[in-house]
């Protein structure tokens, strides 16, 4: 294979990955997954007593993230260059806000915990679920906000 055609092939593959979007019906599927998962999370937290359900908590966290990711990568009913641009903007905003959140939030939690009751919680970093959930929420929120105000 010539060098140019090899580079072209690599570029085509890269753009195929970059432009990957699920069909618009997947928004509904993602939403259903998120709603069901959240409902089960509440049920597990308040109604299920006894037994070790930590595995269920972890499973539900992952399922919620998958549901939100499906919503995030699904196409709009009418997908055009403007919606693609708005989506790219929302990802950029979510990334920046997510990094700030991950840097600042542990100190806020630590501060608040120590103000509310003296000798509160020890300083701890955020978990991956909390950061990813926050970033996906910001992305979806900003995308719909930008779309409404376009």
């Amino acid at each position: 294979m010539e060098k140019d055609s090899f580079v072209d092939c690599e570029r085509k593959r890269l753009y195929k990955v970059i432009n990957f979007r699920l069909p618009s019906q997947f928004v509904g599927i993602g939403l259903v997954i998120c709603v069901l998962t959240t409902a089960i999370m509440f049920f597990r937290a308040f109604a299920m007593d006894g037994g070790d359900t930590e595995w269920l908590k972890l499973l539900l966290q992952k399922t919620l993230l998958v549901g939100m990711l499906i919503m995030s990568v699904s196409k709009d009913k009418i997908e055009d260059e403007m919606t693609m641009s708005l989506r790219a903007q929302s990802y950029a905003i979510a990334f920046i806000v997510g990094v700030i959140y991950a840097l600042v939030m542990p100190y806020v939690e630590y501060g608040v915990s120590n103000v509310v009751h003296s000798g509160g919680e020890a300083f701890k970093s955020l978990g991956d679920f909390q950061v990813l959930l926050f970033m996906l929420m910001i992305q979806l929120m900003f995308y719909h906000f930008l779309k409404r105000n376009r």
């Binding site: 709009d76 009418i78 055009d80 260059e81 403007m82 919606t83 779309k147 376009r150």
Partner: peptide
């Protein structure tokens, strides 16, 4: 032209 009405408006 295959875009949404909101895009034309913008």
């Amino acid at each position: 032209i295959g875009v949404s009405r909101q895009t034309i408006n913008s």
